[in-house]
C-alpha cells in the first residue's frame, strides 16, 4: 500500500478506469496539454493520447452538454470543471439535461456521466470561485453527489462514480489535494451512499462531509485532550444517496449531534440532516442539534476573514461544548 496524495488518488482512479473501459474519456479545460489546472490529470495525455484525454475551450455549457449527449450513446465522460463554481454557467445542462433525461424519457435513456472538480472556499479567490453547490445539486432527484474527504475515499468514490450508470457529481477540495494517506494499489471502490465513521466516540456525534470532516477530526482531538469528551465523527462521503442509518445509529449511541459543513447555513446539507435526526431519533436526543456552517455571506476575499468565515477547529469545539452543556 502506497502513501499518495488526494490528487494522486483521483488520478489513479481515472487511470485505472481509462484502462478498464475504452468508453471512458477525460474532458475539460486544460486537462490534457496543461496537465490540469490543479494537476489532477497530470500525465494522462502522455499515457492515453488525445482521443481519451481531451482539452476543451472555456465553454462549460457547451462541453458539459456535449459530455451529456455523448453519455446518452454510451460514452462514459469524466468531465472536469476547473471549479464547481463554473457549473453555474452550465446549469441547464447539469440539472435539466443530465438530471432529467432518464425520468422524462420514462427510463429509456441513461446518462452515465461524471462531473468532477473542486468545490470549496478557503483559497482566497473571492465569491465567484468559492461555491459549494452540493446541496443545490443534491436537491435534484436524478443526480448523485459525493464529497470525498480523504485520499482513500477520493480514489474509491471516483472509481464507483465512473462505473455508475447515473450522473455522479464528484466535489473535491483544492485544500485537500496535497493531503497524503495510505491507498491500496489494488482495484477497489467505495460504494456510493455509504458513510464512514472516521473516528469512534461515545459522547457526541459530529456529522460532516468533505473538508469539514478533517476540521471536525481536529476538533475531536482537542475535545478529547482538553475537555475529556469522546467524539464520533461520521463522514457522509455521499450526499445523495445519503446514509441515513449510519447517522441515526451514531446519534442513538451518543445522544448528541453537531452538524458541520462548509456550506452557507440556509438550506445547506445539514438542514436535511437535522430534519432526519429530529424525525427519527427525537427521543434519543439529550440536547438540541448543533450546527456549524460558513458565516452567511458571499465568500470573502480577505484571507484573514475567510479563514474565520469557514468552519475551523476552535469554532467546532465551541459549538460542540454548547451541545454538550
Amino acid at each position: 500500500m502506497a502513501v499518495i496524495s488526494y490528487r494522486e488518488a483521483l488520478r489513479a482512479a481515472m487511470r485505472e478506469e481509462l484502462k478498464r473501459d475504452e468508453n471512458v474519456v477525460i474532458m475539460g479545460e486544460e486537462v490534457a496539454q496543461f496537465n490540469g489546472a490543479y494537476k489532477v490529470t497530470e500525465g494522462l495525455l502522455k499515457e492515453f493520447g488525445p482521443k481519451r484525454i481531451v482539452d476543451t475551450p472555456i465553454s462549460e455549457a457547451g462541453f458539459i452538454g456535449l459530455g451529456i449527449g455523448a453519455s446518452m450513446l454510451g460514452i462514459r465522460p469524466v468531465m472536469e470543471l476547473m471549479f464547481w463554481s463554473f457549473s453555474y454557467v452550465a446549469f441547464d445542462q447539469v440539472v435539466n439535461n443530465a438530471g432529467n433525461i432518464r425520468y422524462m424519457s420514462g427510463g429509456l435513456i441513461n446518462c452515465p456521466i461524471v462531473i468532477r472538480g473542486p468545490a470549496n472556499g478557503g483559497t482566497n479567490v473571492g465569491a465567484t470561485h468559492s461555491h459549494t453547490p452540493e446541496a443545490i445539486l443534491a436537491s435534484h432527484p436524478g443526480i448523485k453527489v459525493v464529497c470525498p474527504a480523504t485520499p482513500y475515499d477520493a480514489k474509491g468514490l471516483m472509481k464507483a462514480a465512473i462505473r455508475d450508470n447515473d450522473p455522479v457529481y464528484v466535489m473535491e477540495n483544492t485544500i485537500l489535494y496535497n493531503d497524503k494517506a495510505e491507498v491500496p494499489d489494488e482495484d477497489y471502490i467505495v460504494p456510493i451512499g455509504v458513510a464512514d465513521i472516521k473516528r469512534e466516540g461515545t459522547d457526541l456525534t459530529i456529522v460532516a462531509h468533505g473538508r469539514a470532516v478533517i476540521t471536525s477530526l481536529k476538533a475531536a482531538e482537542i475535545l478529547e485532550k482538553e475537555h475529556g469528551v469522546s467524539v464520533e465523527v461520521v463522514d457522509l462521503r455521499s450526499i445523495r444517496p445519503l446514509d441515513e442509518e449510519t447517522i441515526l445509529a451514531s446519534v442513538r449511541k451518543t445522544h448528541r449531534a453537531l452538524l458541520v459543513e462548509e456550506n452557507k447555513p440556509f438550506c445547506g446539507v445539514d438542514a436535511q440532516i437535522a430534519y432526519l435526526i429530529q424525525s427519527r431519533a427525537f427521543d434519543e436526543l439529550d440536547a438540541p442539534i448543533g450546527r456549524v456552517s460558513s458565516i452567511d455571506a458571499p465568500q470573502i476575499y480577505s484571507k484573514k476573514l475567510e479563514d474565520l468565515q469557514l468552519p475551523y477547529p476552535a469554532r467546532v469545539v465551541e459549538a460542540a461544548l454548547k451541545v454538550l452543556a
Binding site: 452538454g65 456535449l66 459530455g67 449527449g69 455523448a70 453519455s71 446518452m72 450513446l73 445542462q93 439535461n97
Partner: peptide, 11 residues
C-alpha cells in the same frame, strides 16, 4: 444543441 454535439462526438 450541446447534446447534439455530444451525440455527433460519440458517433
Amino acid at each position: 444543441a450541446p447534446l447534439g454535439t455530444g451525440l455527433a462526438y460519440a458517433v
